[in-house]
Amino acid sequence: AQFIESYVCRMCSRGDEDDKLLLCDGCDDNYHIFCLLPPLPEIPKGVWRCPKCVM
């Protein structure tokens, strides 16, 4: 059997509050909206890229 790795935030390495986890459309990394600098108030609509992919 294969275990699917749960999504974890690249900043805090936690997978809780998954309703606040953002998936980068560039590299598929995950980030909590409140772990980003600056934090986001809510999940953005449409395409989102993490700080690494925006640079």
Rank of each mutant, 00 (worst) to 15 (best):
G26W: 04
D25I: 07
L23E: 10
D25N: 05
P39L: 03
S13H: 06
C50I: 02
C27G: 01
E42Q: 13
I4C: 09
K20A: 10
L23K: 15
E42T: 13
S13T: 11
V8L: 06
F3A: 09
H32T: 00
K52P: 13
G46H: 14
C27F: 00
P39R: 08
P51A: 06
H32N: 02
P41F: 06
P51R: 06
V8T: 11
D16Q: 08
C53L: 00
L22Q: 03
L21K: 12
N30W: 09
P38M: 04
I4P: 09
R49Y: 05
M55I: 05
M11A: 10
G15Q: 09
L21S: 03
H32S: 00
N30V: 14
G26Q: 09
S6N: 15
D29Q: 15
I43V: 08
G26F: 11
E17Q: 10
G15H: 04
G26R: 12
D29N: 15
M11C: 10
D19W: 08
P38E: 07
V8S: 12
D25L: 04
W48E: 01
I33G: 15
V8C: 06
V47C: 07
E42P: 02
Y7G: 14
L21H: 04
A1S: 06
K20F: 08
E17L: 07
L23V: 14
E5F: 09
V8W: 06
P41S: 13
A1L: 05
F3T: 11
F3N: 15
W48D: 02
V47L: 04
M55W: 13
C12I: 00
Q2C: 04
P39K: 14
M55G: 03
D28M: 04
G26I: 07
P38W: 03
I33L: 03
H32P: 01
G15K: 14
F34C: 11
V8M: 11
C9S: 01
R49M: 10
K20L: 10
S13P: 09
M55S: 15
Q2M: 09
P41E: 05
W48K: 02
E5S: 09
P38F: 03
K20G: 02
F3H: 10
C27S: 01
M11Q: 13
D19V: 09
E42L: 04
I33T: 13
R49C: 03
C35R: 04
V54Q: 03
V8K: 15
F34T: 13
P38H: 09
C35F: 03
C50N: 00
C35K: 00
D16A: 11
M11S: 08
P41K: 10
H32M: 00
R10C: 09
N30S: 10
D25R: 11
V8E: 06
M11F: 08
D25H: 07
E5C: 13
D19C: 12
L37N: 15
M11V: 09
D16H: 06
I33Q: 14
C27N: 01
K20Q: 10
C35V: 00
D29C: 14
N30E: 11
D19A: 13
V54G: 06
C53E: 00
D29W: 02
P41T: 10
D28F: 06
L22V: 08
V47F: 13
G26T: 12
L36Y: 00
N30G: 13
W48Q: 03
L36E: 03
K20T: 14
D19S: 10
I43Q: 13
V54M: 08
D18P: 15
K45L: 07
I4R: 05
Q2A: 06
S6D: 03
I4T: 15
K45A: 07
P51S: 14
